[in-house]
Design a protein around this nucleic acid. Structure first.
Lengths: 331, 331
DNA sequence: TATCGTAATGTAAGCGGTTACATAAGCACA
DNA sequence: TGTGCTTATGTAACCGCTTACATTACGATA
């Protein structure tokens, strides 16, 4: 079995005390020549300090906890990569747990992570509401909120600029000559902000808002919402607040005999991979998932240092594709 | 700041010694009445044992390390969910790191995870070769290999039955009347086994193997391979060893004016989400990603107990879709 | 009643680091 | 040469658990 090389063995081999070894390794005051020797011996022996012992001695675990809503979500992998990259530079790691979109389970997960001694918690996406979180905050380490409600929680927030992105999406349709633009909306903060962006773009161009239907951010909801819109008519384009809802909308349009990109233009939101493979490929706004992760990690590191980092707002990139065409007479 | 409740405080409050508290909590011999009281007090005080202290005292970290090739891979999220689920039941956690498909970095990552005291390492997908791993094995905890080469490493392996799945895919084409079936293959063990399954199915039905082109498991490679096949002709269907290569193949067929599902039938492999949204939807073999994760976690737990678990081979499920049609005269 | 085995509990020694405090060494200065 | 600093290093306590071993209590047995 692998056996751990301890600091004592390094100390013996280098002919110094463990305190000196510890200092040499962690940048304390040591004579340069001694440091040199200790480092050399430590390297030769393959010494690597026991994280557990270090945690116990210092009270800092050098780990942060990350809670995601759904392990299979396509964006979370990218966020985690961003988090991992950023943390690694600071010698930190992370523990991930998924709440599986169950607020009760999220509570569990938070307690669990907290019991595991993480120094900060990054909560991604929707989950427990602000009041519920506030109630738990006493027993939890510092929080960082990513794309989540909770301005009142005195926790740093990392978000995307939903409103501007939605405005950009809508403007993209307007630039293609569309004047009657519908919206399939979603719930919560993200949904509200995207709705607001849509409104703002229309208002800025002196256009009246088209019909709005809620799609609950699900494919089935998007399908139903599109059906409802089709029933009402009066639009030549739709801004859909998520790619997944756009998927459902595609189906509804197809069933109604409408060709996306010809009879009706569509812009989605999120930039999920499958959008590129739809027929026609879906125009969308790409979320900067990895950057969100990095920003969240930076914020988390800052809070572990007792700082109070600024909120971060990132913007999305428009991905123009064939689902949007020049206006040529609408529904 | 949150302060940790220690076992001493519980002991005081319950009027017993710390040893008794520890035993009461971990199932040692304690009088039932005492255990009851201790548990009660511990609950009231909100005691949860310091993992670091426990690791230090027992030498077991209750954590395993997981290495994935690519944080954004769509299957890894599912695998991790399986791993997490299984580990949680045993009171274990995991640390993930991604090698980003860089063997050098994988070496780093392994050392890093190992320095973090994980009790076992689950290596997913391709990466360092068996010789390189063997060379490191001395400084690493026990390994579990998931979909990876290394039969000679004396490490439990969790894999899918690539050959049978490929055979099933090919048989599916044969059942639709195709007799001249090409193959776009991939590298490494997975590629070889899928090739073998394709051959086996053809042989079993007395059919001659059609042309084979390697696509390197990438979309661009699939495109090139399909181009090459089209140049040669002589097939009415293709079994493609990965969905991503199938994506490239679709493009090549489209550019050549061939309609997938009509002029040429295609079966992919992996069961990635986007396949359902291709035009036409791609028939494929779905990898049991979550089950792979669970099996891997079970194996990892077993090795931490010093057991030598059996290899696990899981099978894939055929997902029939419109990319395969009854033979009606081929290229 | 003395003896012994057994069950319940307590005492204290680690586990492997960090770090406050003590000590020693080296040097400048009077 | 003695005094006082500064700097380098050592000693040992502590972080919060687990667990080997010691101790105590108690009923069973002779």
């Amino acid at each position: 079995m692998r056996r751990r090389v301890t600091i004592y063995e390094v100390a013996d081999a280098a002919g110094v005390s463990v305190a000196t070894v510890s200092r040499a390794l962690n940048g304390g005051r040591v004579a340069p020549s001694t440091r040199e020797r200790v480092l050399q011996v430590a390297g030769r022996l393959g010494f690597s300090p026991s994280p557990a012992a270090r945690v116990l001695a210092t009270g800092k675990s050098r780990a942060i906890g990350v809670v995601i809503p759904d392990a299979t979500g396509p964006l979370y992998g990218r966020m985690l990569r961003g988090i991992g990259l950023e943390l690694a530079q600071a010698g930190y790691t992370y523990l991930v747990e998924s709440s599986e979109r169950d607020p009760g389970r999220e509570g569990q997960v938070l307690r669990d992570l907290s019991a595991r001694d993480v120094e900060a918690l990054v909560l991604i996406g929707s989950g427990l509401g602000p009041q519920a979180l506030a109630a738990m905050q006493g027993e939890l380490p510092a929080l960082v909120l990513v794309e989540r409600e909770g301005a009142e929680l005195a926790a740093p927030m990392v978000t995307i600029d939903n409103e501007s992105a939605a405005e950009r999406a809508t403007r993209y349709l307007i630039e293609h000559g569309h004047e009657r633009i519908a919206h399939i909306s979603g719930p919560r903060r993200a949904g509200r902000e995207r709705l607001a962006g849509w409104r703002r773009a229309l208002a800025a161009h002196g256009l009246a808002p088209g019909p709005v239907e809620d799609g609950g951010f699900t494919e089935a909801g998007g399908y139903r919402a599109a059906k409802a819109l089709i029933g009402q008519g009066g639009f030549s384009a739709v801004f859909v607040a998520s790619d997944r809802m756009a998927l459902g909308a595609y189906r509804a349009f197809r069933e109604a005999g409408l060709r996306v990109g010809a009879d009706v233009s569509v812009v989605g939101f999120d930039g999920l991979e499958f959008g590129a493979y739809l027929d026609p490929p879906l125009s969308t706004l790409r979320q900067p998932a990895q950057q969100l992760g990095q920003a969240a990690a930076r914020a988390a590191l800052a809070v572990t240092r007792g700082e109070r980092p600024e909120n971060v707002v990132l913007s999305c990139e428009l991905v123009p594709r064939a689902s949007v065409m020049e206006y040529g007479g609408g529904l």
